[in-house]
Design a protein around this nucleic acid. Sequence first.
DNA 1: CCGTCGAGGTGGTCGGACCACTATGGCCGG
DNA 2: CCGGCCATAGTGGTCCGACCACCTCGACGG
Lengths: 233, 233
Amino acid sequence: MDETAPQKGTVPQRAIEQIKAMIGEGRLEPGQRLPTERDLAVQLGISRSSMREAIRALTVLGVLEARHGSGIYVTQLEAGDLLETFGVVADLSRGPRLVELLEVRRILESTATALAAARITPDQLAEVEKHLTAMNATDDPEVILAHDLAFHREIAVAAGNDTMAAILEGLSSRTFRARVWRGYQEEGAFERTRREHAAIHRALVAHDPEAARAAAAAHVGEVEEWLRAQLGA
Amino acid sequence: MDETAPQKGTVPQRAIEQIKAMIGEGRLEPGQRLPTERDLAVQLGISRSSMREAIRALTVLGVLEARHGSGIYVTQLEAGDLLETFGVVADLSRGPRLVELLEVRRILESTATALAAARITPDQLAEVEKHLTAMNATDDPEVILAHDLAFHREIAVAAGNDTMAAILEGLSSRTFRARVWRGYQEEGAFERTRREHAAIHRALVAHDPEAARAAAAAHVGEVEEWLRAQLGA
DNA sequence: CCGTCGAGGTGGTCGGACCACTATGGCCGG
DNA sequence: CCGGCCATAGTGGTCCGACCACCTCGACGG
């Protein structure tokens, strides 16, 4: 018997492993187009439905990208594509785990900010300042939130570690922060937030890693403490 | 017309959002069983195929769990369930991004080890020691790797932040470390690794957070440096 | 030479059929 | 009466074939 299917796990799961293996072995380069769903199904000896499930799974993971009418492609496997799932975690987490996520963010954000203080270029610094002033120029919470996110994103990018930036992006996902900050900012924390952002900015300008680390840690820590108090109440 | 489908995005994508919303709004509790695929498909006005894709996607993300012959259940939404996919990222990353992932791990691992030094209980310490001695008692790389993973996992758990432990678990996934360490250990790094583990252990016993942080950072940093050199060569 | 439009190929969706597995409850033997 | 076995109904798993929506690219006409 040629027995190409050694019967391990579910059918789509096997397909997922095989495609992952193809990528891992370099047989599929990023950006390259895969055979059609129909062909792949025939190659692996499974039905198109199962193949679709496998492709869907890999699409969710950010490994593949399906373009309607065109074909299936391997993504660039960049940090952003692969770490999108972090946002899902943040969105579905609640209670104590929110605090844990904020703690992780505090650790990474403080280090990222410290690295940024040492490495940031004038161009990047200008970008950071743009969002800082925009944030202080309005009272619309939506606009503030958007620039707040961009402010921290620029800093994370300036730290020079795209993977870390992508993780922080997920940990600061829009819905996540909107949920937490809704209550936080209602307590008149605008002013404090502005002071903290200013402190971070000063540390970046001074290229002072230690000050940047402290400022960023305090910034996230403030929210963390508030949330902890909310849960304990 | 009642127009329940405002036509946004693909069909399965809409279904995913709706199910996520159900969970987010608390209409679906962790551990609870969902309606059958067939019923859900009818409820959302889509075909079972599309519903299956949506379920598959949420299964991959660790939000749902399908038990053949029994039904579909909401997971406990614990950090481990949701961050399992993180391991996939580590497995598919290569080159410069491996260094970035190690850098993130160094930051988190050092902090986690420092926290563990302050909080670890005698029981947990005993568990850590068990893996340490087991690791030093053999020359089988497979066994060493297994106990090495367990060693760091116990420490991460002792740090008291399950989310961080889950992330570190992903960053240290089996295939990831196997790939990197294969070459690393070939260069006679066994002895150095043992010394570093011993240093971490001493810091834990002494409940000395700063020493623990330094030891852990050095431990991961060693591998990081080696990998960086490999890539530059 | 360039813009238009058509055909072919792609992923997206659908419905139905059947298989594999699990759980439940009744039946049978003790 | 009790306990384990087993038939059965219901679940997710897989497959098939058809059709739809969309993109691509080349032939055609201006």
